[in-house]
């Protein structure tokens, strides 16, 4: 019984949050890795692109809520996501045509594109705060829990509860669907193959008659989908707050690099590696060990490896270790 209780504690506080957070990071890292692989620069604006997409979803949800439209028990935001994606596609293509295209034309070095993306980060950041404000915005509705802690206890008779939020399940399912669709697209369709060809060898792709602008457009469409979905679902799961997305940038980049930049499989693996390490290292294991260790062996502390205040140190440490010992990442991406 104690062992079961211990496992439930672990599942409730580490595994389920880890899966949800990992899915968000994986989707984010996929966007970063696609841009790195095909447009060949590190897009620092990706965090704020997610915030921007999330903002469209929040505004749309509020509007629908004011009209009394809902798809309960599912959150209304799901209904809005496709429209938010369309707006994001237009917005990202506008950014590309006005800013990035020029630097591609003059064949600027990647660092200049990175700096341009940093500029776009600040512009997006400012716009989001201007439009929706810097504070927390709530837009979640529908059923909150699939299984609440209390129900779980009543159901199983265990001391510990296991809560699964609907938003966590949606995040995970959405990540699976999107990843499956993306891989089908990249491996089976002609468009996906020309993107892979472009990522593999740009010169040769051009000399095979592949139109680079077409490939670039498709990359931005995919990035808009990935960023809007992950941005909205992250907001749904926590609350929507523009600043948090900028803070996601480090773990997302760490995920992309750990998995191997430019490699989509790596981005997903990296997302889960980072998410689980972060949660594992910052979780206080006192309760867990309370069930499996005899009373007199239990230490008096809360058995937390590092404080949650330092959670970014986890991504950073993993990043440094990977760059030192395996610069191409787990799945052999491009070395940086």
């Amino acid at each position: 019984m104690d062992l079961l209780n211990a496992l439930v504690v672990l599942a409730n506080f580490v595994i389920i949050p880890g899966i949800a957070y990992g899915s968000t990071l994986a989707l984010g890292a996929l966007g970063i890795t696609l841009i790195y692989g095909i447009l060949r620069f590190s897009n620092f604006a990706h965090g704020d692109t997610m915030a921007f997409g999330g903002m469209f979803a929040v505004l749309g949800t509020w509007w629908l809520q004011s009209k009394g439209i809902s798809i309960a028990p599912l959150p209304t935001a799901l209904l809005v996501i496709p429209f938010a994606i369309v707006l994001m596609i237009l917005f990202l293509l506008f950014c590309d045509r006005t800013i990035y295209r020029y630097y591609r034309k003059v064949k600027a070095s990647p660092i200049i594109l990175v700096m341009a993306s940093l500029g776009i980060t600040f512009i997006m950041n400012g716009l989001v705060r201007f439009i929706i404000g810097p504070g927390e915005r709530r837009f979640a509705d529908g059923t909150r829990f699939l299984i609440s802690a209390r129900d779980f206890k009543a159901m199983t008779g265990l001391n510990e509860g296991l809560a699964i939020r609907l938003s966590q399940v949606i995040t995970f399912v959405a990540a699976i669907i999107i990843v499956a669709a993306l891989f089908w697209f990249l491996n089976k369709t002609r468009t996906g193959k020309s993107m892979r060809a472009f990522s593999d060898n740009e010169d040769l792709a051009l000399l095979s008659g592949i139109n680079p602008e077409k490939v670039v457009t498709i990359v931005w469409v995919l990035v808009a989908i990935l960023a809007t979905v992950s941005g909205t679902l992250y907001g749904l799961d926590k609350t929507y707050k523009p600043f948090t997305y900028f803070m996601l940038l480090l773990p997302m980049f760490a995920a992309a690099i750990v998995g191997g930049l430019g490699n989509p499989v790596g981005a997903i693996a990296g997302g889960f590696v980072i998410a689980f390490s972060e949660i594992f290292v910052t979780y206080a294991f006192k309760k867990f060990f309370g069930y499996i260790l005899p009373k007199d062996m239990l230490p008096s502390g809360i058995i937390q490896i590092i404080s949650t205040d330092y959670k970014f140190a986890v991504s950073f440490t993993i990043l440094v270790l990977v760059l030192l010992f395996r610069p191409t990442g787990i799945f052999k991406g491009q070395s940086i």
Partner: peptide, 23 residues
């Protein structure tokens, strides 16, 4: 130059550009 991660057949089928499946 070649697309190393694709098969020989896929390499050839990459040419020509402007195929229907490209949009």
């Amino acid at each position: 130059h070649e697309f190393g991660s694709m098969t020989v057949l896929e390499n050839l089928m990459m040419v020509p550009g402007g195929q229907t499946g490209e949009s």
